[in-house]
Design a protein around this nucleic acid. Sequence first.
DNA 1: ACCTGAACACCGTTCAAGT
DNA 2: ACCTGAACACCGTTCAAGT
Lengths: 241, 241
Amino acid sequence: MTPPRKMVSEERGKSRPGLTREAIIAAALEIVDEEGLEALSMRHLGSVLKVDPMAIYYHIPNKSALLDGLIEAVMGEIDLSLDDPSLPASERIVLAAHIYRDVMMAHPQAVQVIAINNLNTRESFRPVEYLMDIFLGAGFSPHRALAAVNIFGRFVRGFVLFEVHQIFAEEAAACHGCAPTESLQQLLPVEEFPRMNEVMASVGALGTVDEFDLGIRALVDGMFATFYEDEDQMSVNEDQT
Amino acid sequence: MTPPRKMVSEERGKSRPGLTREAIIAAALEIVDEEGLEALSMRHLGSVLKVDPMAIYYHIPNKSALLDGLIEAVMGEIDLSLDDPSLPASERIVLAAHIYRDVMMAHPQAVQVIAINNLNTRESFRPVEYLMDIFLGAGFSPHRALAAVNIFGRFVRGFVLFEVHQIFAEEAAACHGCAPTESLQQLLPVEEFPRMNEVMASVGALGTVDEFDLGIRALVDGMFATFYEDEDQMSVNEDQT
DNA sequence: ACCTGAACACCGTTCAAGT
DNA sequence: ACCTGAACACCGTTCAAGT
């Protein structure tokens, strides 16, 4: 029925290289990076690994666990040593945001997996712990520090998710020979959307890195300006499910 | 006379009610709300509509267009008349964020479609135009106003996306009989994650509405505090792809 | 212990054909 | 104009069987 499904025996007596979880995940990430997320099927993955597709199920329970592996792999690329503890706390957080964004932007095709799913491995929580330390060190209450890391994480992941989504959309539109602003302008008539047209006329394309920096700085500034306030009124709703 | 593609004949003659784009999208939204996004297949949709699944393709080109229809439908629920123009601009933006969040939270199962895809219908852009007007009216430069609406939109959609994701994850965990905090605590040993444990011990569960409010207020405060600054250094990178 | 291959129950989409 | 039904080329996953 439910026998001890332990994976023991990691001794390397067997010269058999065989299939490993790591090799599978690495191959999966390569497929996603090079051919896109929709190209990642168990069958295709099996053919890349030169193995019967079903062999994968011996090492990984299902596709969702495979995607978790992708998240783990990319989160593992975050290099916390890039932090500079001599900087003011708010600057360290802005820096952390850029580091986080950079590793995600290095795998644009994987972003919709990385950004959407919740973290659920120990490895993925190391950066969270690190960030929590900065917030607490800056004098945030535990309650506010927790809120801050949640808000931070949602901001960064959300921003990057939509950033790559927009990039892909623009590429697709470019393939069809129409500039993105053009297609927007023909969708939005001036009479009904005066403000949008006003802005589109005077601005042109935007640098998304700058926009990200602008946004994260506004958020961090705002959090440091408002999170030290009295939080009594919040503890009322604190115990909801 | 004219051959407009709009077949209005909804009256007598053909007592046949027939299939309409609207009815299809309404049924699709109902499926998603009640059975979840993964239950939305063309075949299932056809069976709900008591029609051959392939009949749908006569009215809607493909599934992706069907999902666009869902977005349009939900965005159409946004009620701009809830705004109060007598409030200060920053408060109106916070209010707008809550309105936006509320319509998305009314369709939690559809959020991963609504929040992830870019807007691409005229109807969906009406709230954007409205918001742009508020930012411009508050004295933001066109450049900064555009950045502000982008950042605003990404914040709200990202936040709600992860909020519902977390809710679903907690429900799933609850079904397995383990409290969410418990499972986190056993994943994160105290020695390696002292800060996380410190916070989890003293905080407990969080009210997500409060967290959202805290976050959007921090962001808006920050934007109003920093977006009036000189923006010369930004125009340098303005013309990237 | 590790891998195979057939099979099951699904998908989205195309297309010739019906009314 | 609107709908049908068979068919195509895929999925993820299970399971008995091979080595």
